[in-house]
Design a protein around this nucleic acid. Structure first.
Length: 276
DNA sequence: CCAAATCCCTGCGTGC
DNA sequence: TGCACGCAGGGATTTG
């Protein structure tokens, strides 16, 4: 369940290890993830020196010389690790990128919800077409109360699925959507259009806070997520509502119970006492 | 145009 | 012991 803090944690670790290193060959073990996967095609884009590892929304972008890049999405269960050449292969390893110094970058993805594909930077100003139309980065300045308020004006549906919509703001997934709404004291069942300008400003601040706080702790490990060095993120301990259905609300003196509902086919957790 | 439902996939926990 | 089932959820696609 990598959301922004998890993907950014992975990006930082990979950038530190991989920048300046060379990709010398690609091998795949399955014909497709969420989209077709071809070693030949990937090798055309992921070749030579890794110039940078960027992040946009929940996507990672590996830049190579000659205006070539590789886009990577982790889906639900994707992970990267670096191992020695000839090191032990694991179940669900889907792609191997042979590096210099006898090392290998491995992409593992149990459920194959991820994406690995090449693109040419000059064709698209550095970002591939599937990222066009994405909303602002939540930790950047252009994501502000006024912006969110404007975008929510026409939203007749519940606010929670809306803040998970990548066209509104990127990087907020199911866990942090519930957590941010709890911290903002806003019920996930409120319609987007019903939020006041002041509530939008509060929600923006809470989204920022929860993402930053998680980033500081290396993300949230629930089940599959691991940092590239194999360690776990520590934010799970700070979750106030997510996965806590039936348990007492974390706010001192509240005494209410956390409720679980389903919105847009996904679990939402909230405290009916604290969130109005 | 918008919102809700469905599908992709695998592992795990539960109940019988 | 095993089997059916529900759940986990990012995002594309389909349906209403």
């Amino acid at each position: 369940m990598p959301e922004l803090p998890e993907v950014e944690t992975i990006r930082r670790a990979l950038a530190g290890v991989l920048c300046g290193r060379c990709v010398k060959g690609v091998e795949t073990t399955v014909p497709a993830l969420r989209e077709p996967l071809s070693a030949t095609e990937l090798a055309h884009f992921a070749a030579g020196k890794i110039l940078s590892v960027r992040r946009r929304a929940k996507f990672l972008i590996f830049d190579f010389p000659g205006d070539r890049s590789m886009l990577a999405h982790l889906g639900m269960t994707g992970s990267f690790r670096v191992m020695q050449q000839g090191g032990e292969r694991q179940k669900h390893d889907r792609a191997f990128f042979r590096l210099d110094k006898n090392e290998v970058l491995v992409y593992n993805d149990i459920r194959r919800f991820g994406v690995l594909k090449g693109f040419v930077r000059e064709d698209c100003a550095g970002l591939p077409p599937e990222l066009a139309g994405f909303g602002p980065e939540p930790l950047e300045k252009d994501f502000c109360g006024n912006y969110l308020h404007r975008r929510l004006q026409r939203c007749k549906g519940p606010v929670k699925p809306f803040i998970m919509d990548q066209r509104v703001v990127v990087g907020v997934g199911n866990i942090y959507a519930s957590e941010a709404l709890f911290r903002a004291g806003i019920s996930p069942e409120r319609t987007g259009a019903s939020l006041t300008a002041h509530e939008c400003a509060t929600l923006v601040n809470c989204i920022r806070k929860v993402l930053n706080e998680s980033l500081k702790l290396g993300g949230t490990t629930i089940s599959d997520y691991k940092r590239p060095d194999g360690s776990e993120g520590n934010f799970a301990l700070r979750l106030k509502v997510y996965g806590r259905a039936g348990l007492g609300c974390a706010r001192r003196g509240c005494g209410g119970l956390v409720r679980r509902i389903v919105q847009g086919g996904r679990a939402t957790f909230y405290c009916p006492t604290c969130q109005k």
